[in-house]
Computed example of a mutant assay.
Amino acid sequence: MKKLKGAILLAMIVAITGMSSCKKDGTSNPTGVAATVKASNFGFDGTGATTFTSTAAGMVKVGNLLTISAIKDGTTQSISIVLSNVTAPGTFSLLQDNADGNGAIISKDYTKPTDTALNYSTDNASSTSVKGGGEVKITSLTSTTAEGTFYIVAHNAAGKDAFAEQGTFTGKLN
């Protein structure tokens, strides 16, 4: 469990640091970032849902490990998904304690990765012991691109919830 949290946290920090330090090339996306992540139903702590759009997301595939990291445009809110055993399109569980060690973090402020009140993980349970979870469906995967859908239900250390539903991702793999 701690190993998964550490791997997700490290992947999130590396991917987001790389995205936030990218240089603009005159187009709408930073150089080297060619992915878009959206969720039409996104929120925290039982508040009303908003949309999540990241036009400067990053997707990295190393071996069979796929990481999707996105910062909501104009905010410090982020979504990070780490999937293992990705070799072809398919459905990947984010349910707490899944056999593959897949997971996701939704953050209110990605610049504060150690603040347990601001970071919500599928590895945590709610205050009423409802497990975190979700699902990622990769509908297209090549050596250079990925595309799919997702939903995430995550909890912070206090058991409060965050969610991202009706999510999509598409773009180039780095």
Rank of each mutant, 00 (worst) to 15 (best):
N85Y: 07
K72E: 04
L66N: 01
G63I: 02
K72I: 07
V62W: 12
I71G: 07
A70H: 02
F42A: 01
A88H: 08
P89L: 05
D73G: 09
S80A: 10
L66E: 00
S20R: 11
V37T: 01
S28V: 14
G63V: 03
L83P: 00
Q77N: 11
D73N: 12
S84A: 14
T67W: 01
C22S: 12
S54A: 06
G18P: 08
V37P: 00
N85V: 04
A88L: 12
T75H: 08
A35R: 01
T50G: 02
N98R: 04
G43F: 04
A57W: 00
Q96G: 05
K72M: 07
N41L: 14
A70S: 04
T75W: 05
V60E: 08
L95I: 12
A56W: 07
G90F: 05
S84D: 10
M19Y: 15
G26K: 11
A70D: 02
S80Y: 05
V62N: 15
N29I: 13
V33P: 07
S80T: 12
T87K: 09
G32S: 05
G58E: 05
N41W: 10
L95R: 15
V33R: 12
P89D: 07
N64Q: 15
A56H: 11
T76I: 05
G46Y: 04
T91Q: 12
D25P: 09
T53F: 07
I81N: 00
S78M: 04
K23H: 15
A49W: 02
S84T: 13
K23N: 15
F92I: 03
T51L: 11
N85H: 09
A49H: 06
S40C: 07
Q96I: 00
N85L: 08
D25A: 15
V60W: 04
F92M: 08
S84W: 08
I79L: 05
D73S: 09
S93C: 14
L94S: 02
T67N: 05
S78V: 04
